[in-house]
Design a protein around this nucleic acid. Structure first.
Length: 281
DNA sequence: TAGGCCATCTGGTCCT
DNA sequence: AGGACCAGATGGCCTA
């Protein structure tokens, strides 16, 4: 791990802190208001130790300067200047690291909020970053398709769209969230989700939970979705049945009932324009 | 134990 | 000059 910038040798030794070297205060000055993170704390502490060790060396040098009251030149000034430059460079690096951490934390926070508005959010079984982005893309696409069609999609088509390009575990998770049997989906090499050929309605539809308007089922969840999300899918009834072309890519007749109502802020949306407007708000 | 995922550090590049 | 952004490297953790 490249976590030992510049000189490392002193870090292998016992820290030489005196009782009057407040580490914590220094750390707080370095990176204020960060949530506790063991890994991060250790690295920050390491950085702080480096810095404090350097300062202590400076102070020790200064102690020898005034034995006879005259300022003594100890060692080349050039070296001191170089050391100051190095200290400054190191400090800037530490500050840059802190900014980078904060930036990544912001990115992760945004990703977490995205997780909460795509289907199948779970605190305990979090989607990976890449799967979250893929699922979000598919979700937007699926909703757009639904709007364009102007009618309810069938569940399996919807899930099929959701699962395009997702890994098998995530596909299973999505199918599980939607109370579908994942056996009915096959994934080809291109990541396209195919139906195996069995009737989708062989799958058991146990009553999905209405999760405050979000299309996230069977998951434990904070109850503030209705507040935080604009769009959701609400389960509204038992699915109909549709004929399948046996052994072919799964298609469902348009008459098949989709067991969900699309809702915008708990109101059935009427037009795509409204949705687009809301998105841009 | 290998592989996936993640957090962090780091140096480079671009922009203000 | 300094901050934001990015990608590569690295090591830790977890799971199959």
């Amino acid at each position: 791990m490249l976590t030992l910038p510049f000189e490392e040798s002193h870090m292998m030794c016992e820290p030489r802190f005196g009782a009057n070297h407040p580490r914590e205060g220094f750390l707080e000055r370095l990176e204020p208001e960060r949530p506790h993170d063991p890994a991060r704390s250790s690295s920050a502490l390491r950085e702080a130790e480096e810095d404090l060790t350097d300062r202590e060396e400076d102070e020790r040098e200064d102690e020898h300067d005034d034995d006879d009251g005259l300022p003594k030149k100890r060692g080349p000034r050039k070296k001191k200047a170089g050391k100051e430059k190095m200290d400054r460079s190191r400090l800037r690096r530490q500050e840059a690291n802190a900014r980078e951490r904060n930036r990544m934390h912001g990115l992760n926070a945004a990703l977490e909020s995205l997780r909460k508005v795509v289907p199948c959010y779970s605190k305990t079984q979090k989607l990976s970053k890449i799967e979250t982005l893929r699922l979000a893309k598919n979700y937007i696409w699926a909703l757009s398709e639904t709007l364009s069609a102007g009618k309810r999609p069938d569940l399996l088509t919807f899930v099929q769209t959701l699962c395009k390009g997702l890994s098998q575990p995530t596909t299973n998770l999505v199918a599980g969230c939607l109370q579908l049997n994942a056996r009915h989906f096959l994934t080809d090499h291109g990541g396209e989700v195919m139906f195996s050929g069995r009737s989708p309605y062989d799958a058991v539809y146990s009553p999905p939970m209405n999760f405050n308007g979000i299309f996230s089922l069977k998951q434990e969840d904070p109850p503030d979705y209705a507040k935080s999300s604009h769009y959701g899918m609400r389960y509204c009834g038992a699915p109909g049945r549709a004929a399948l072309a046996h052994g072919s890519m799964y298609r469902v007749s348009p008459e098949a009932r989709f067991p969900y109502d699309l809702h915008v802020r708990s109101q059935p949306f009427q037009a795509q324009g409204e949705v687009n407007g809301s998105f841009h708000n």
